[in-house]
Structure formats: structure tokens, C-alpha cells
């Protein structure tokens, strides 16, 4: 369900861009961070086979995130306003690299990159949420995208509990980062459920 929610979020994002011929309201910085997240995490495509499903999803996430960047940077460039997308990504990249160096399962390059990608994913939404706060409102379709994207990691949580008891396996890095990631959406979810799903416009209190 988490993976399908993630997949749905990307389909909704592409649908929003195509139908409105615009990337208004979408943070280029957040989208660029996702490209970095997927490239650093899915490097193991080259040596670690899990399943056709797993490989297909990895390829889709890499390809779609690069494609969204292309759409924002070239095809719909005039519709993107950098002056409201001002979050400093250096404040995310530095700490995530340090977290990756401290918390990893083996001190080697690919494992550090994997851990870095987990931490970076947890906070990659911040430029987008920062932008949303600056503008104070959003199109309904953009909020559906964010809701599906936020629900995705939250839906992993029951799976982690299941695996803790069922398979006696726990991934503390993914769990802690996943809880942080989900936590960052709580404010958004509150407004989404109380306004957008009640048929009102997404507007933040002044």
C-alpha cells in the first residue's frame, strides 16, 4: 500500500503538470532532492537483485523523478518561480551526510550513501512545505499529490511492526527516519483532512 501510494503521488504530480501546463506550486528543490535520494539508494540495482517488482519500481522512481526535473527545468520553465523556492538545501545535505556517516550498517561507501538517502528522503519535502507556507495556499491537485506522498512512508510503519514481530527483523535507521518523515506531514495532513477533504480550498491561517 505504501509503494502504491508513492506511485500514485507521482502519477498525480504528472497529471497536475500536464493538465495545467504548469508546475506552479511545486518546489524544484524538493524534486531535485528526490532525484538524489533515488540515485544514491538504488545504486544497488547493479549488484543486488530482489525481484522484478523491486527492480521495476526502482527504475520507475529514478526515471520519473528525472523526468519531472526535465519538465520543470525545460518544458514548463516559465511556470516555475524560483523566488518563492528559497529553502537552503545545504542545511539538509550537510546534516544528512553526517547522519549517514554516523548511522550505517557497515562503514563503506555504498552503505553510507544508502543511509544518506534514507535521511535525505525524510527531510526532502521541507523546501516544498516551506514554499507552501510562504504562499499560504495550494491547488487541490497539489494537495492530493502531497497527501499521497506523505501517506506512503506512514503506510510503511505497520509493515515495519509486522516484520519486527513476524520476521524478527528491524531496520532502526529506516524506522527512525520514516517516523521523522511522517511527522513532518502532520500539520499538512491536519489542514488536508479538515479543509480539502471537506470540499474547501487549502488555505493556511494567516
Amino acid at each position: 500500500a505504501g509503494d502504491i501510494s508513492h506511485l500514485a503521488s507521482i502519477v498525480i504530480l504528472l497529471h497536475k503538470i500536464y493538465t495545467s501546463h504548469s508546475c506552479r506550486g511545486i518546489s524544484f528543490k524538493t524534486q531535485a532532492l528526490y532525484v538524489l535520494v533515488f540515485l544514491t539508494r538504488y545504486l544497488d540495482l547493479f549488484w543486488h537483485w530482489v525481484s522484478l517488482y523491486n527492480t521495476a519500481m526502482k527504475v520507475f522512481f529514478i526515471a520519473s523523478s528525472v523526468y519531472v526535473l526535465y519538465l520543470m527545468k525545460y518544458k514548463y520553465r516559465p511556470t516555475h518561480d524560483p523566488s518563492i523556492d528559497t529553502f537552503k538545501v545545504e542545511y539538509l545535505l550537510g546534516p544528512c551526510l553526517i547522519l549517514g556517516l554516523i548511522f550505517n550498517y557497515e562503514f563503506k561507501f555504498t552503505e553510507i550513501l544508502w543511509s544518506f538517502s534514507i535521511w535525505l528522503e525524510a527531510v526532502a519535502i521541507l523546501p516544498q512545505l516551506f514554499m507552501l507556507q510562504r504562499t499560504g495556499e495550494a491547488e487541490a491537485i497539489t494537495t492530493h499529490y502531497l497527501a499521497a506522498l506523505g501517506a506512503y512512508r506512514a503506510l510503511y510503519i505497520p509493515n515495519w511492526i509486522w516484520r519486527y514481530f513476524g520476521d524478527n527483523v528491524v531496520d532502526p535507521i529506516a524506522v527512525v527516519a520514516g517516523l521523522v518523515q511522517t511527522g513532518l506531514y502532520l500539520d499538512f495532513f491536519y489542514v488536508y483532512f479538515t479543509k480539502v477533504l471537506q470540499g474547501q480550498k487549502f488555505e493556511l491561517p494567516a
Binding site: 523491486n54 550498517y105 544508502w114 515495519w160 524478527n168 527483523v169 531496520d171
Partner: peptide
């Protein structure tokens, strides 16, 4: 419980 990275997840 074994602490390990769940590399079969996305």
C-alpha cells in the same frame, strides 16, 4: 531481533 537494513524495501 536482528538489526539489519531492509534492502528488499524501496
Amino acid at each position: 531481533n536482528e538489526h539489519t537494513s531492509t534492502k528488499d524495501e524501496l
